[in-house]
Amino acid sequence: MKKLFALVLAFALLCTASSALALTVGFTQVGQESDWRTANTDDVCSAIKEAGWELIYDDAQQKQENQVKAVRNFITQGVDYIVFTAVVTTGWDEVLQEVVDEGIPLVLIDRFPETNFPDDSWYTTYFGGDFPEEGARAGRWILNYMASVGHEGDINIVRLQGTTGADAQVGRTKGFDSVVAANPSMKIIFDQTGNFTRAEGQAVMEAALKAVGAENIDVLWAENDDMALGAIEAIKAAGLVPGKDIIIVGCDAVKAAFEAIVAGDMNCTVECTPLMGDRVVEVITGLEAGQTFEKTVHPVEYVYDTNGGIAYDDAGNVTLKAADHLAERLY
């Protein structure tokens, strides 16, 4: 009888393990527009595979219709979970309702879609940056840094926005605008999307230099580092010294931005971590065990610049010196 019980128990454990290994996870990514996005994709895909689950991955190539098609394909294929980050903020109600109707748990990362659902039961949890706070941090850093170097008068700013309608673009723009509204000396003199890409960042910065004149620009604020790095090339091509003639502020804190800060080409980057794979695995594992999670979780993030010590939030937290943290950057 004991041997029979042991065999039954072993079989039950084997079935449980097999069930865990049999999980299928669909992951629809917005595209590969930046170093940040590549790191995000690699981290999430690697974590899902290392957990022993089957991954069905789809690259939407920056098109909402591709993501809608991918989600519907996930439903048809009978996935157990969908990991979703929205290329734009709106227009998702119909396809996400289909996910809800099929009873597939939806794990949101990075970009949060706006919906007209009556409550928040349609998704399990969201993990990603606080985009309005990231934009506000950039604005506060600019204000405090310019004061620290004795700048007087207006601060003339060129802004490169991300992909129009993307959650990161909407949030970072809103947060930055809130700081500008409270500080009349901050003037946005040129404002255009660079679609989060290095190539468009360079092209739009070239246009800005021609439109308003280099001598009238104090600061470039780019809503991601790739656009900032592209803008640096345009500034150099115009015979100017980035980081000195024009202060350069980016967002994401990718390794290339740290290298640019250390080289003197860039002044500041606001962190937005792409490393979300461990959180995805934690959530799916927990959901399988019957756990629930907070609806919104933001990672702890910092701001990095040339020398450190510049306040960037209402709590008085100050920047860290980029050179001291370059070696630890994984992306």
Rank of each mutant, 00 (worst) to 15 (best):
E114W: 11
T124H: 13
V100F: 12
A136R: 05
I155A: 00
V88N: 07
I104W: 09
V87D: 09
A60M: 01
E114T: 15
N116S: 14
V79C: 07
D110T: 12
V79A: 10
Y126G: 04
V107T: 11
I155C: 00
N156H: 01
N66I: 11
S121M: 04
A147I: 14
N156D: 01
N144K: 03
P132I: 08
L106P: 09
T124Q: 13
E65S: 14
Y145F: 08
A138Q: 02
A138M: 05
P105K: 01
G103R: 02
R72H: 10
L143R: 02
Q77R: 14
D59Q: 05
L96P: 01
R140M: 13
E94N: 12
N156A: 01
T89E: 15
N144F: 01
T125I: 12
I109A: 03
K69F: 12
G91I: 04
W141H: 04
W92L: 02
G129V: 09
D80H: 14
Y123Q: 10
G91S: 08
L96C: 04
E102A: 15
E152A: 07
P105G: 06
N73P: 10
V87W: 08
P118Y: 08
V107I: 15
E133K: 14
L143W: 00
R140D: 11
L143N: 09
I82W: 06
F112T: 13
G78Y: 11
N144T: 00
K69C: 10
F117C: 06
E65W: 14
Q77A: 09
D93E: 11
I82S: 01
D93A: 07
D93Q: 11
A138E: 04
D59R: 01
F74H: 11
V88G: 08
E114N: 15
G129P: 11
W141K: 00
T85I: 11
T90V: 14
G78L: 05
F127E: 14
T85Y: 12
L143P: 00
D59A: 06
A60Y: 00
N156T: 02
E152I: 02
N66G: 07
P132S: 07
Q61Y: 10
I104H: 09
R137T: 06
D154F: 03
H151N: 04
D59I: 01
F84P: 07
D101N: 08
D119F: 15
E102V: 13
I142F: 03
A136K: 10
L108C: 07
L143K: 04
Y123G: 03
N66Q: 11
D58A: 14
A136C: 09
F131D: 08
E102K: 15
G153T: 06
L108M: 13
Q77W: 11
L106Y: 09
M146T: 04
V99C: 03
T124D: 13
A147S: 15
Y145S: 01
F84K: 04
D80M: 13
V68Y: 02
A138F: 00
E98D: 03
D80N: 15
N144R: 00
A86S: 13
F131H: 13
A86G: 10
G103C: 04
I109P: 02
R140Q: 14
A147G: 15
T90L: 13
E94Y: 12
Q97N: 11
V99M: 04
G153M: 07
F117D: 06
W141I: 05
R140E: 12
L96G: 06
E65N: 15
G153W: 10
